[in-house]
């Protein structure tokens, strides 16, 4: 079981709720994926939380836990205000904190992120910070009260998969006891399996499922890949070698020449 801010989950997939062909397909995909946590954008999906009640009640009916996010916020103030609104609307202290630094690439503004995380953690929020794979920023986020980290593995929506495995390994190595969730950049189940094999605790994704040819089937594929990656990590993957090693004794050949 994975524990996130005192809450135990058995699925290591967190799924976004945007961009699906219809809410019915979204609901089916969530169920097929086995995800127990879904992210919801207060701003873009519910128009500032003013209404959007039907969509919200459909998500509630799935019995999953909601992780509201601050998608679309470009400043500390905006992100903090949105987080507070999300707490009111969704009735949870959980917040996926996004402070966007570049409108075009949606790259996180890590300076604003640390500042906003500090304010929100002090106000009792359970902050899930969407960050880059930078080790120093990760340390600062933990210093200001985050109990877990959500590094990207590639730019959001790019579907490129892990771009810097060394950075991801380094984060895992430096923070062995902090839940690490890869958020953003996953395109295929094999990408998700790769980061899970590195020992990451969970994966958060949205576009790769929502915009797949068959979102429900892809959600199920991701669920399986993430479980496989986790199991492989626990089983201890074999180290890679530079050359072939026969698995049976080589008799009658000059094996040591």
């Amino acid at each position: 079981m994975l524990e996130l801010y005192g809450h135990q989950v058995s699925s290591r997939l967190l799924l976004g709720t945007a961009l699906y062909p219809s809410p019915a397909i979204m609901a089916e995909a969530i169920t097929a994926s086995g995800a127990e946590i879904v992210t919801v954008s207060l701003r873009r999906e519910t128009s500032g939380g003013k209404t959007g009640g039907k969509f919200w009640s459909l998500i509630q009916s799935l019995g999953v836990r909601v992780l509201p996010n601050t998608a679309g916020c470009h400043s500390v103030k905006e992100a903090v205000t949105t987080a507070k609104m999300a707490r009111e609307v969704f009735g949870t202290d959980w917040i996926k904190l996004e402070v966007i630094g570049n409108h075009d690439t949606l790259q996180p503004d890590v300076f604003g992120l640390v500042e906003a995380a500090k304010i929100l953690a002090a106000e009792g929020f359970d902050v899930f910070p969407y960050t880059t794979d930078d080790l120093v920023v990760a340390g600062r986020l933990l210093d200001v009260g985050c109990k877990l980290l959500m590094p990207w593995c590639a730019p959001i929506g790019s579907a490129r998969g892990p771009q810097n495995l060394d950075a991801l390994r380094s984060l895992r190595g430096h923070f062995p006891d902090v839940p690490l969730i890869v958020d953003a950049g996953i395109g295929r189940p094999s990408h998700a399996a790769t980061v899970m094999e590195l020992g990451y605790d969970a994966v958060l994704l949205n576009t790769a499922v929502a915009k797949a040819g068959d979102p429900v089937a892809m959600a199920s594929a991701f669920g399986k890949a993430i479980e496989a990656g986790r199991q492989a990590f626990r089983a201890g993957p074999l180290e890679a070698r530079d050359m072939a090693v026969p698995s049976t004794p080589v008799i009658g050949m000059a094996a040591f020449s």
């Binding site: 128009s47 003013k50 209404t51 959007g52």
Partner: peptide
Amino acid sequence: MIESDAAGPITAR
């Protein structure tokens, strides 16, 4: 395409 039945004016964004 926004999941909402709020009919207010268009937003700046």
